[in-house]
Amino acid sequence: MKKWEKLLAAGLFCTAVAGFYNPAAEAAYQLNPEVKNATMALKTASEIGVLTNENKDLANLQNKDAIVVMTFGTTFKDTRMKTIDATVNAIKAAHPGVKVVTAYTSHIIIDRVAKNEGIKFPTPEEALDQLKAEGYSRVALVSLDVIPGMEYNYDMGVYQNYKNQFKKMTLGTSLMYWQGQAEQPDDVTETIKALATQFPKQGKHDAILIMAHGTPQVSNAYYSVIQAKIDELGYKNVYVYTVEGWPSLETVMPKLKANGIKNVTLMPMMMVAGDHANNDMAGSDPDSHKSILEKAGYTVTPYIHGIGENKAVQALYVERANDAWQALEAPSK
């Protein structure tokens, strides 16, 4: 019996929510209609993929729709314009005439940007409170997170806390969510191919180290999947490591030595090229990744650009936004 057939037996079934530009459907899950008296635990277990909630008590409200794009944010103005702002603008272009709000999940960054630049980005909660006050009744929540880690948990918390305050609310997935399991889309492979459009040409003695953030949450295991997919796709001497998780730089350095690598390109797998990219990765301090590698005898070239600058990656984020929007616009059940 297939894995998802077992889930069917447990009272779950899969329904496809098609993206505007992606013929491969983005999957979501909901309870099997044969389940008449689902417990809260079973309802929670069915919340996978693009999430959708309809409040029947507000069914008579007129449809007034908006999109809230949630991102951690950055204090680096230049990279913000090239990454977050550019990605949000791409989402706006795909949804002309729709109100699109950018919300920061980092309250510290919100305060610092407000102090240094006089720009006040709302938290997702503030953005939703304002939309409700303005009479918006249906909201698609969009995430600019890379994997469904701790930051994506914040997004899910916002969805759970606010879903019944609106007639309808949806939450899209992170950039990488599905892994091609059980006939689901392979977001990881899609993302790696998009990221590869910025890879430099490599010789026998060259390597690319992709710096991810890392998370103490169990989703840190995504980095093992990413590495496996990189190897499966045939990219040679391309390794993922993390700033605050596993694998670390020390984990991958023995692979460089074993493969006779002399030249290393460092690049972040983060929406923006902020503090981690400029300081932890490419800084001049002795404990920066660049300094550590140079001390070990490697020639190091930092690529200080957030993945939000990559047009192919932007297109994937637009697809994720489209998935959330399509679920919002789907007929009521």
Results as ranks from 00 to 15, higher is better:
M1P: 11
L7K: 13
A10N: 09
A10F: 06
G11N: 08
F13V: 14
C14K: 10
V17Q: 10
G19C: 15
G19L: 12
Y21M: 06
E26G: 10
E26N: 13
Q30G: 14
Q30R: 15
L31V: 07
V35D: 05
A38W: 04
S46Y: 06
S46N: 12
E47Y: 02
N55V: 01
A59N: 03
L61N: 04
Q62E: 15
N63Y: 06
I67S: 09
V68F: 06
V69S: 07
V69L: 05
T71V: 15
T74A: 07
T74S: 13
F76V: 11
I84N: 02
A90L: 11
A90D: 09
I91M: 04
V98T: 15
V98I: 14
N116E: 15
E117V: 03
I119N: 04
P124W: 02
A127H: 07
L128Y: 08
L131I: 12
E134I: 03
G135Q: 13
G135K: 09
G135A: 10
S137R: 07
S137W: 05
D145K: 06
G149F: 06
M150S: 11
E151C: 03
Y152T: 02
N153T: 14
Y154G: 05
Y162I: 02
L171Q: 11
M176T: 14
W178R: 12
Q179R: 14
Q179I: 15
G180L: 00
Q181N: 13
P185H: 11
D187W: 00
T189H: 01
T191C: 12
L195W: 11
A196Q: 11
Q198L: 04
Q198Y: 09
F199K: 04
K201Y: 02
G203F: 07
S219Y: 13
A221E: 14
Y223F: 15
V225L: 13
I230S: 05
I230L: 12
I230C: 06
D231F: 03
G234V: 00
K236I: 05
V240I: 15
V240S: 02
V243C: 11
V243W: 04
G245I: 02
W246F: 02
W246Q: 05
E250M: 04
T251I: 01
K255G: 01
I261A: 07
P268T: 15
P268N: 07
G274M: 05
H276C: 08
A277R: 01
M281S: 07
S284I: 00
S284V: 00
P286T: 12
S288W: 02
H289V: 01
S291N: 08
K295M: 06
Y298D: 07
T299K: 13
T301G: 04
P302E: 07
Y303N: 09
I304R: 08
G306M: 03
E309I: 06
R320H: 10
A324N: 03
A324H: 03
A324F: 02
A330L: 12
P331R: 10
